[in-house]
Amino acid sequence: MPEPKSAFDATYPCDFYEPAELFEPEQMYTIPEIGRLLQGLEPDADVDPDTEAVLVDWAVPWVMVHADEMVVAEPLTEDGPGYYGVAEHAVPDDEADAATDESA
């Protein structure tokens, strides 16, 4: 049920990360991992199933909105999840250079 804004002590801007801010440039993530990252958690944080369902509900539209800044990979196994990462063109040059230096 909708509530009037006056019912809340405060409201905040609805700011979300950009893929280049959220992802490590050389890593790929599953939807549940993206949901955790969007909430400031580690990708492998232990969350209960109900919380994970909410995180996935947030992550799916976020991925769709940012699809032009992302890449997708096929699952590693036939029944495994897909993986998503930041596209090279979406990473600022200084971050891309640092990621290349680290992997060398």
Rank of each mutant, 00 (worst) to 15 (best):
E3N: 08
A59M: 04
L38E: 02
E88F: 12
T51L: 13
E69P: 00
P13A: 06
D46W: 08
K5T: 05
R36V: 00
W58A: 00
A20C: 12
Y17R: 05
P81E: 15
P43E: 15
A98E: 03
I34A: 04
V60S: 02
V72F: 05
D9T: 13
P43Y: 09
A104E: 15
H89T: 13
H66P: 02
Y84F: 15
P32S: 10
C14R: 07
M28F: 14
M64R: 03
Y17L: 06
A67V: 01
M28T: 05
Y29P: 02
P61H: 00
T30Q: 13
P81L: 12
L37T: 06
V60G: 00
P43G: 10
P13F: 01
L38V: 01
A90H: 14
D79G: 09
D48F: 13
Q39H: 06
Y17H: 10
P25C: 07
E18N: 05
P43W: 06
M1E: 03
P75Q: 04
D44V: 07
P61R: 01
M70R: 00
E102A: 09
G85V: 06
P81F: 14
A73S: 10
V63Q: 01
A10M: 13
V91Y: 08
F8I: 06
E69C: 06
E52Q: 14
W62N: 01
D94I: 09
M64Q: 03
G85K: 04
I31V: 15
A67M: 01
H89A: 12
A104G: 12
F16V: 04
Y29T: 00
A87I: 13
E21Q: 15
P25T: 02
I31M: 10
